[in-house]
Design a protein around this nucleic acid. Structure first.
Lengths: 254, 254
DNA sequence: ACAAAAGTGTTATCCTTACACCCATGT
DNA sequence: ACATGGGTGTAAGGATAACACTTTTGT
C-alpha cells in the first residue's frame, strides 16, 4: 500500500545504469525456495529488483526495493556480488519478449536499452512469516523451488545460482537457520536444510552431535507427531549464542 | 607506454557514476604491502582505480584500469565488494584538498561531484616481478606496508580494510602464496605470510606438518644462507595440486 | 663448545566417521 | 509384536596443540 504509491519511477532521482536484484531464500517442506515476481501479462519471472535513489546508500536501497516490490521488509540484506557483463541483459531478446506488453509510461525504450550493472543482495527468511504481494508491474509474487526455477529475465538465473553458491559457501563457517526455520523445529528439519543447501546426505547421528556441540540450540519439549515412532525433541535457536557464532565463525584454520 | 596513451578520458565512453578500485597485495621481507598511487602534486594517496568503458565487462575493465594506471598486467582480478554509501567520497573535503591542483582538463567539477559507486577488485602479486610505474595523473606508484597506510583518498582506507578482511577470510579455506612468494621460498617465509595475514603467531612445527600434508608444496634443494644454523629447505608450489585445492577448498564442514 | 634456527618426534586431547544399539510410538 | 524413526553409544582413525629432542651451521 504505502510501499506501492512510490512505484511511479522518477528516473532523474535514481542512479543511471545501476540496479539492485534481491535473491530471497525461504525453506518449506524440506525444499529451498526463492522469491520471484511474475511480469505483468507475460510468462516471464524475475527477481525482485529496482533502482537506487540518488540519496540512498545502496544497502538501504536494497531494503526499500524489496519492500516496494514484494511487501516484505527485511532489516538486513547482504550484498554478495555485482554483475556487470556488457550483454548480461540480452536486451534484444528481452524487448522481443515484451512486444505488446505495457511498460511503465516513462520507461522510454531508450532508457531501458541502456547498459545496467546490477548489485546482487541476498537474504534468508521464514517464508511462513511473510505475505509477499506483487507490485503494479507484476501479477504474482511467489516462492518457487530452487530446483524448479521458471524461465527468468535477463541473467537472473545466473544471479540466483551465484547466490546459492554464496549460501553453500557460508554454511561451512556460519550458523544457518535462524531466519529460515520456524521458531521451533526438529533436528530432522535442520538437517534437511543443511542437506538441501549442501546437496548431499548427512549422517543423522553425527549431525545431531555436531549441532548440539556448537551450542546455539536450546532443547524444548517433545513433539507428539502421531506417527508410529518415538517423538522427536523440538529445538529453538539460542539467539545470543547464534549471534556470537555469526561473528566469530564456526570453524577455521588452526 | 601504449597503456599511457589511453589515459585521456572520453567521458561519454564510460559508464556514469560507476568506478572500479583495485587493491593489489604484495609480500616482501615478511610484510604485507598494498600498491598505491600518489596524486600529482598532492600528498594524497589513492588505490589504482578508474572508469568502466561502455563496451567492456567489468572484470575486463578492472584489468585494463590496473594496467593503465600502474603498468601491471594481471590476468585475474577478483571482485570482492561494491561500495555505495551516498557520501563515501566526502566530496567537499576532497575538492578542498585539491585546491590549486590540476585535474584532467575534461573533468569538469560538475562531473567529478556526482555520486560514484565503486566496485572493489582484489589481487595478489609477487612484488618483485613487476615494475609499477605511475600514470599521467600520479607522480608515484609504490608498495606501502598494510600496517603503515598513508592518508588516502575518499574511502580508500575502508576499501583496503575490506579487502584485507576478505583475504583473511580466504586464507582459511584456500591455499595462498603462489602469486605472492618468489618461485622458491623457505617454510619460514610461507609461515610469515600466514602470520602476517592472520595477524597472529603460529607454531613452527605444526605449521610445517600442516602445509606438507596439504600436498601443494614440492621440496627442493637446501639453501645455504651463510647463517650460523642449519640450512632450510627451499620449496616451490606444485601448480596442479595448488590449483586443485583452489577449486575444492582446504577444509570445510564435514 | 656454543648459540641459533631447522627438522622431526611425542603425547594428550579432540573431532570425525561409520556404525550399532536401544527406546518410544501407533498400527 | 513389530516396523519406524528418534536418541545415544562406541571404536578406529585423523587432526590439533603444546612442547621436547636432535641436527646442522658459523663463530
Amino acid at each position: 500500500m504505502c510501499a506501492k504509491t512510490a512505484s511511479t519511477l522518477d528516473l532523474s532521482a535514481v542512479l543511471p545504469g545501476l540496479s539492485i536484484d534481491c535473491v530471497i531464500f525461504g525453506f518449506d517442506r524440506g525444499k529451498l525456495h526463492v522469491l520471484v515476481l511474475k511480469w505483468k501479462n507475460e510468462d516471464l519471472w524475475a527477481l525482485p529488483g529496482g533502482f537506487i535513489p540518488a540519496t540512498m546508500d545502496i544497502d538501504q536501497a536494497a531494503t526499500k526495493i524489496l519492500e516496494e516490490r514484494t511487501g516484505i521488509r527485511l532489516p538486513y540484506l547482504a550484498q554478495f556480488h555485482t554483475f556487470g557483463k556488457v550483454n548480461r541483459r540480452r536486451i534484444d531478446s528481452f524487448l522481443d519478449q515484451l512486444k505488446g506488453s505495457v511498460l511503465p509510461e516513462n520507461w522510454m525504450e531508450e532508457w531501458i536499452r541502456q547498459r545496467f550493472v546490477s548489485i546482487g543482495y541476498l537474504s534468508l527468511v521464514n517464508l511462513h512469516q511473510c505475505r509477499p504481494s506483487p507490485d503494479l508491474f507484476s501479477d504474482a509474487c511467489e516462492w518457487v523451488q530452487v530446483k524448479e526455477l521458471p524461465p527468468m529475465l535477463f541473467d537472473h538465473q545466473h544471479i540466483t545460482e551465484k547466490a546459492l553458491e554464496q549460501l553453500r559457501h557460508q554454511i561451512n563457517y556460519l550458523p544457518i537457520g535462524l531466519s529460515l526455520l520456524p521458531e521451533k523445529f526438529t533436528m530432522k528439519e535442520l538437517q534437511r536444510l543443511y542437506e538441501e543447501v549442501l546437496e548431499r546426505k548427512l549422517d543423522r547421528a553425527n549431525f545431531q552431535k555436531k549441532m548440539l556441540k556448537l551450542g546455539f540450540l536450546d532443547r524444548q519439549e517433545k513433539q507428539m507427531t502421531g506417527a508410529a515412532h518415538k517423538a522427536p525433541y523440538l529445538y529453538s535457536f539460542n539467539t545470543e549464542a547464534y549471534q556470537e557464532l555469526l561473528q566469530k565463525g564456526i570453524g577455521y584454520i588452526s
